[in-house]
Each structure stands twice: as C-alpha cells, then as structure tokens.
Amino acid sequence: MVLVKNVSKTFGEISAVTEASFAVDQGTLAGMIGSDGAGKTTLLRIIATMIPPTSGSVIVSGMDAVTRRDAVKALLGYMPQRFGLYPDLTVDENLDFFMDIYGLTGAERSRRREKYLGFSHLTPFVRRKAGDLSGGMKQKLALACVLIHQPRLLILDEPTNGVDPVSRQEFWEILAEMKASGMTLLVSTAYLDEGENFDRLVILHKGRILAQGTPEAVCSGYPDLETAMIKRIETVDAGLAEERFAL
C-alpha cells in the first residue's frame, strides 16, 4: 500500500529525515515510534503529500506521491498532529465542511454523518463548538472528519498525545475497527506503551530508522520496548548515552 524508498528531507541545514525506507502492507496497522524531533511528523507529511521529499520516493497504491499528488490525496485521510479543525465552528459545521469539500449530498451524506458521528460518540454534542470539546472528543471529531470520505489509507500523527486514558482506549478500539474493515493505517506515537497495538513498528531516532518489524521482533531479547529502544539508541548515538548528568 505504502512504499517509502530512501526518503530524505532537509530544511535548510537541518536534515529532518535521512534515508528512510519501509513498507506498509494493505490492511495493516503500522506504527511509527520516536520522541519529538525524531522525524515522525516530517515523514508522515511526506507520505500524506503535504511536502515533497528532498530525495527518494513515496509510492502509495502504485502511484508516486509527488507526480500524482491529487490521485494519492484522494485515497488517503491525514490527521495532523495539532487539532486541525475550526474551533469556532460546531461539531456539525466542521463535519459539513468536509462533506461539502468531498461533494457528498443527499442520502449518502446523511448516512455517513450518522455513521461517523455515531461511532465517535459525538451525536449528543453536534451543536457544541469544536473548541469547547475535551481533548479526547476533539481527536474523535478530527477522526470522524478524515474518515468521512472513506479513505483507503489513514495517516494519523500522534492522535493520542495528551488524551485521557479512557478516550485513548476508545480511540484504539475505533482504529481496530477501521483495520478490520480493510483500511490501511499508519499512526505515529510518542507513547512507547502503545507499541504493542501495532502489526508493524518503525522506530525513529534523529531522522533515522533504528529498527523495524513486528513489536516482538523489535523487542527481541529485551524485556520491553523502552529498554529495546534505549539499547538501540545507545549503539547508534554514543553521544547521547554520554549525556548522563549528576549532582
């Protein structure tokens, strides 16, 4: 579904992503794990056709993300890290905007509205302004909006960051449902404890891919993902390991 080949991205002097290559299979839930500044957002934005890579290529469903941008855009849904909705518009009006853009009308429009408001448990709040929703509800509304055109590939940038544990769990349940319906998902997170939810993991550190594979394979030999990640960072980034500070 997604094929990332030797992708690098530099902003001026800074290289945000260096020589990243990985693949996401159709119908799987892939995770991208790394701390802030590891390059997760840049890589996701490249795949979502938001920015072109400096070098390398991204192929989505057989189409190049740069040369066939409109076609790729049409089959994916991308939810940026920051709440990308209009805080002064109500839940309904936000959803209306997305449906207008995708030209949804008549019976199909009301069917989808019911469906996605329903599963995000937002039906009682349709008249509330998006800015007045709690963090968890905001994320669920954002998800409903990107799902409204029923994309085949869903890209979510740290959707659960700072969200309360209950909403987080609900969010993961929704993602599992999406996957069961045949959707391909690519999700980034800074929470290492969410790693086990993924079919495949890509571990990023300072713009480079440290490891990839199933969660079990990435953890191999280590008690948990955090230890596995620390060990791997230590092997590539000796400087960081030296930065221990003490009284």
């Binding site: 056709t49 855009k73 990308g84 909705l85």
Partner: peptide, 9 residues
C-alpha cells in the same frame, strides 16, 4: 487548520 486544508482536494 491550513494543514487540514492542504490535505483536502
């Protein structure tokens, strides 16, 4: 929201 707009057709 500009990021959202950019992700839309």
């Amino acid at each position: 929201t500009m990021e959202t707009i950019r992700s839309l057709p």
